[in-house]
Computed example of a mutant assay.
Amino acid sequence: MVRRWALVLVLGGVWWWAVLRLLLAPEHAGLVEGAVAAGGWGLSLLPVHVTATARHGRAAKAGRAGPSRKQ
Rank of each mutant, 00 (worst) to 15 (best):
M1C: 10
M1A: 13
V2R: 11
V2A: 10
R3T: 13
R3H: 10
R4L: 14
R4C: 14
R4H: 11
W5M: 10
W5A: 13
L7N: 09
L7E: 12
L7D: 12
V8T: 04
V8P: 05
L9H: 09
L9D: 13
L9S: 14
V10H: 01
V10K: 00
L11A: 08
G12M: 03
G12L: 02
G13M: 08
V14I: 03
V14C: 05
V14H: 04
W16N: 06
W17F: 03
V19N: 04
R21T: 06
L22M: 02
L23A: 09
L23S: 12
L24I: 10
A25G: 14
E27W: 15
H28N: 14
A29S: 02
A29F: 00
V32C: 03
V32Y: 04
G34F: 00
G34I: 01
G34P: 04
A35S: 01
V36S: 01
V36Y: 00
A37N: 03
A37M: 02
A38F: 01
A38Y: 01
G39M: 02
G40A: 03
G40P: 01
G40T: 02
W41V: 13
G42F: 03
L46Y: 03
L46P: 02
P47W: 03
P47I: 04
P47T: 06
V48T: 08
V50I: 05
V50F: 05
T51D: 14
T51R: 15
T53K: 10
T53N: 12
A54I: 11
A54F: 12
A54Y: 15
H56R: 15
G57S: 05
R58T: 11
A59Y: 12
A59G: 11
A59V: 07
K61Y: 04
K61S: 10
A62Y: 07
A62I: 11
A62M: 15
A62E: 11
G63N: 02
R64H: 07
R64K: 13
R64F: 13
A65G: 10
A65L: 10
G66P: 02
G66E: 06
P67C: 09
P67M: 13
R69D: 15
K70G: 10
Q71V: 04
Q71K: 11
